[in-house]
């Protein structure tokens, strides 16, 4: 039988979506509560790790050639560097310029560009952790001596 017992499978089906949503909450509220891009990204990757542990790796239809996670990772890193360089486009000479309006302290929409940095760093970290997990655990049989 693939995977673990019926109890673990059913509970995982109920909980995995909740874990993913909690990771998004940690990322989006990174400038109000502890957490931020890194911790939320790893929790988002944790929901997929939970599904792979409970069901086995066949149910997600992963192909062995390319899983596509590295693409998201590189794209997110490029977006972070572009956001950092966007101060140069406005004519100033400052890297990492925070040119958005600040908003009021303590509200959800505030702190200028910091939530955008948080979101893209979160996407990058989630895809890179998932790539390391897949490479070390699943595609290990590909190595032939």
């Amino acid at each position: 039988m693939k995977g673990m017992t019926v109890i673990v499978k059913k509970t995982t089906q109920l909980i995995a979506g909740m874990v993913f949503l909690y990771g998004m909450y940690v990322i989006v509220h990174g400038h109000l509560t502890p957490g931020g891009g890194f911790a939320g990204g790893v929790i988002m990757a944790g929901s997929f790790i939970l599904l792979i542990l409970a069901f086995g790796s066949d149910f997600m239809h992963l192909t062995k050639e390319e899983s596509g996670t590295t693409m998201y990772e590189n794209l997110a890193t490029l977006v972070v560097i572009f956001l950092a360089a966007s101060g140069l486009l406005l004519g100033t000479r400052i890297f990492f310029l925070n040119w958005f309006p600040k908003g009021t302290l303590g509200q959800l929409v505030s702190a200028g560009m910091l939530p955008l940095y948080n979101v893209f760093v979160g996407i990058e970290v989630a895809s890179s952790i998932l790539t390391i997990f897949l490479a070390l655990v699943i595609f290990k049989e590909e190595i032939s001596e």
Binding site: L136, K140, I143
Partner: peptide
């Protein structure tokens, strides 16, 4: 802490490669 995680993952990849060899 984040750089420590990256170092550990890299080290583990080298170790598992040496064990296979």
């Amino acid at each position: 802490i984040v750089i420590g995680l990256a170092t550990t993952a890299m080290m583990m990849a080298v170790i598992i490669r040496l064990y296979r060899k």
